[in-house]
Amino acid sequence: MKEILIVKNLSFKYSDVPVLRDVSFSVEKGDFLGIIGSNGAGKSTLIKLILGLLPYKSGEILLHGADVRTRKPNVGYVSQKVASFNTGFPATVREVVLSGLKKPSLFRYTAEDMRRLGECLERVGMTEYGNKLIGRLSGGQQQRAFIARALIGGSDILILDEPTVGIDAMSVKSIMELISEINRSGVTVIMTNHDTPTLVEAADKLLIFCEHGNAELVKKNELSLAEMSELYAGKRRHHHD
């Protein structure tokens, strides 16, 4: 399988506080990687580093074979936007999704842009909401629109940082189903979530953050839930063959 993301010996500090220590893992094309760990363990920091939003000195992150420090990574990204979203912003779902195009034409959207818009809205089940103001929709519908915005750029990798924050339980289930469906269509998914059981169920690989910024990559079927809990709590280490 082709490795789409390689993280080698990555360490990171905020001022003098170490957050990540010698983290190494790789993600193959089509994987669904769940990143789990307690609050402040370094999950969101790792996401920011992969996205090229934070500078780092120690280690290496290669996305599509290129160092994220030198080449802006082409990824679809979904944040906790629903939780911090300005609902008074007068933008339609259509306008928001189109803003995810990597190189929009100057004067008007091309037929190809509009085709991709239609395809992405259909993919997330929001076709009939295209002309609705995004602030008037439910949290789940807003997050579907943000997923469509992340997909319209055409990247084969989707990174989601706590995408179900601020969304009701029923919508969480359907959002997770949507993300799994996107993954099954061939898009590599990397995701963090505060709701660990839901993420463990959906992902096929898990990067488990233990104490002191260490992280272990495990395939879901390699360990029992009890063993994973021990790993999570830092009571054991997992050794790959």
């Binding site: 939003l53 802006k72 928001v96 803003s99 990597k102 929009p104 915005r149």
Partner: peptide
Amino acid sequence: REIFAITFDEEAAKIAG
């Protein structure tokens, strides 16, 4: 288009390059 994208979501605009 750039002004809209940045006004709506600065972080996403940064990630989009």
